[in-house]
Amino acid sequence: MENKKVVLIEKSTELFLTYGIQHVSMDDIADKCGISKKTIYKFFENKNDLLLQIITIKIKKLKQILKIYPKKHSNSVKVLYTFFEDIKLIMNKISPILFIEIKKHYPNIFIEILKIKTYTLLPFISENIKQGKEEKLYKNNLKATDLCKSYDTMFNMIFMNYYNNSKSEQQTSISFLNNLFLHRLVSTKGLEELNKLYHKN
């Protein structure tokens, strides 16, 4: 039974990311999983419950992944650069309308997403800035809180307020934002490290 629930979560997540939430019905999910809609309701009360459980699982996984970044990479520039590259890949799989749909139709889910940013992602970036300053790879006069707020505002503009942007436009926008943010952070020493990563990729 538990394996069926895992498959349901994986397949429904794939559908939601690709087509948005409103365009995916419980019948679509049942067809994708090769089961009856009745079976879905053995695990989830409704679509809102399904979404909440998906978000809960993704939050747990994200927290585990964020702990790994500093251990896998030798300095703060590599950590943040790799993190941003991974974010870009993830966002490329997400329908441009997904965040807008969540904000409009699933306010409780939207609040959970905001919590992820506020209590997980932004503290991760803030801690990275602190580490980068200690390594002399970031400018010493940086104010992590202000920078994180600015990044968050621009991120929201890209993914939650644009009604007609395509995936390609999202990719271009997020790449620009991440590169701009990294260049705002790095010192002369850090810029050398950053340029190595650009040339490598």
Rank of each mutant, 00 (worst) to 15 (best):
S150E: 11
K37S: 12
L122H: 00
L121K: 06
T82M: 10
S25Y: 02
A144E: 04
S95H: 12
L122W: 00
I125W: 00
P96I: 11
K71I: 14
T153W: 12
S25C: 05
I54F: 06
I57T: 14
K63V: 10
H199N: 10
F43I: 05
L80A: 09
E169T: 04
L182W: 01
Y151G: 05
K149D: 11
L114R: 07
I109P: 00
L182T: 00
K130L: 14
N3I: 06
C33N: 04
K42R: 14
E112D: 10
Y162M: 14
Y106L: 04
I29C: 07
H199V: 06
K136D: 14
E10T: 11
L15K: 05
D152G: 08
I29L: 04
E127K: 13
K93W: 02
K103W: 08
S150G: 11
L62H: 12
L177R: 03
F83R: 03
N3D: 03
Y69D: 02
V6G: 03
K42D: 06
Y41P: 09
K130D: 09
G20C: 08
I111G: 02
N164T: 05
N201M: 10
E127N: 11
S166K: 09
N46L: 01
I54Y: 05
L121Q: 02
K38I: 14
L177P: 04
S150K: 10
L52I: 15
K78N: 13
E2G: 15
Q22V: 12
Y106P: 01
L52C: 15
S175F: 07
K149Q: 14
K130Y: 13
I129T: 01
F124M: 03
K103I: 15
Q22E: 15
F159Q: 00
E112K: 14
Y41W: 12
L121G: 02
M91E: 08
L142D: 04
I111T: 13
T39I: 15
I87W: 13
N48K: 15
E127H: 12
I55D: 12
I35V: 09
N140V: 10
K38E: 14
V24F: 02
P123W: 06
L89Q: 14
L142R: 09
